[in-house]
Amino acid sequence: MSDIPLFSERLSRRAFLGASALGAASMALSACTTTDVATPPPPVAAAPPDAAFGDAASMYAARTDEGYQLPAIPVAKLDPKFVRQIVADPTGEKPGTIVVDVSEHFLYLVRDGGKAIRYGVSLGKAGFGWTGSAVVQARKKWPVWTPPPEMIQRRPELAKYKDGMPPGPQSPLGARALYLFRDGKDTMYRLHGTPEWDSIGKNASSGCVRFMNQDIIDLYSRVNGPAQVFVRPNLSAAGKMMAVSSRTAEPIDAGVPKDAEFLK
């Protein structure tokens, strides 16, 4: 009797059992998976950062503004605390208010959400410091600087500018000026730019608040209406109570220019 039929029968049974096992495994696998896999939602894009903030080298790089070439600020020589930055608001004032902390040489522009923009500034030298309140009532890009008669009398070399020094990077008023008023009258105090970036953090002005030009350009862009300004000796409760002074500034210019933008 031949063994071939028996071998074939065994082979057929093995093939059948193997196919059955494979089918069972496939059914078991299909029971653990689904063809209706939900596509995950795309990630939510992060809000773009404020373009006015970033690394210091970018914020204070050379730039062309209104046709004038501003040089770069050597940021390696700046104290990092005087670099423009967003901080927790230490003033407690409402958004849009400007607060100067004389003791620290900081100016804060209060924002929503308990935040503020902090700028490093230069303030009045001995005999020209002041505290008090005022309102930004006018502003001007690249103002012409006209020294007042009192200044020309003290510094006769400035007589050549009695009719005005053309605007530019070397102007004492810098790239922008914000004019402070009290009770509708010009206080002769200004928030303005300066080419003397190394005066930031020091008492060097005649009473005005000086900024690096890149910073006053930024502040100017954010003050589009009358803004309350407080100049305080410090930000303590006592400093807030002392924030009134009758000090009269030494004029830095001959007055608000006729072509300035008055804010309403």
Rank of each mutant, 00 (worst) to 15 (best):
L173W: 00
P143E: 02
Y119I: 02
P167I: 05
P90Y: 00
Y108W: 06
A159R: 15
M151Y: 03
G124M: 01
A159Y: 08
A138E: 11
D55G: 06
S122N: 07
A116S: 09
A61G: 11
V75K: 08
P41N: 10
A51C: 08
V110I: 11
D101H: 03
P95L: 03
P148L: 11
L109C: 10
P80F: 07
P169V: 15
D50V: 04
D89I: 04
L180I: 08
D163H: 14
G54E: 08
D55M: 10
R176W: 03
G124F: 00
G124L: 01
A61W: 01
D50K: 01
Y68R: 12
G113E: 07
R63N: 07
G174C: 11
V135S: 06
P166A: 15
K94E: 11
G132H: 02
S122Y: 01
W130C: 05
G114Q: 05
K81W: 05
P156Y: 05
V83N: 02
A134G: 13
D55A: 09
Q85S: 13
P95M: 04
K125Y: 03
R118D: 05
G174S: 11
S103F: 03
L109V: 04
P80W: 03
L109I: 03
A76P: 06
G92H: 05
D50W: 03
D101R: 01
D101V: 06
L78F: 09
W145D: 01
P95I: 03
S133Q: 14
R155W: 10
F106E: 00
V83A: 14
A134W: 00
G129R: 08
A56S: 12
T64V: 14
G174N: 12
L178R: 02
F128R: 06
L70W: 01
L178H: 03
L178W: 01
G174I: 09
G164D: 07
G127H: 09
P43V: 11
D55Y: 10
E104Y: 02
F128W: 14
T64C: 14
T97V: 10
P156T: 09
T64H: 15
A61N: 07
A76G: 13
Q85C: 08
A46K: 09
A88H: 06
E104A: 14
Y161G: 10
V75N: 13
E104F: 02
P48G: 08
V136W: 00
Q137I: 05
K162N: 14
V144R: 15
M59W: 01
P143G: 09
V110L: 06
G132P: 13
Q69S: 14
P143C: 12
K125S: 10
V87C: 13
A134K: 00
V135C: 07
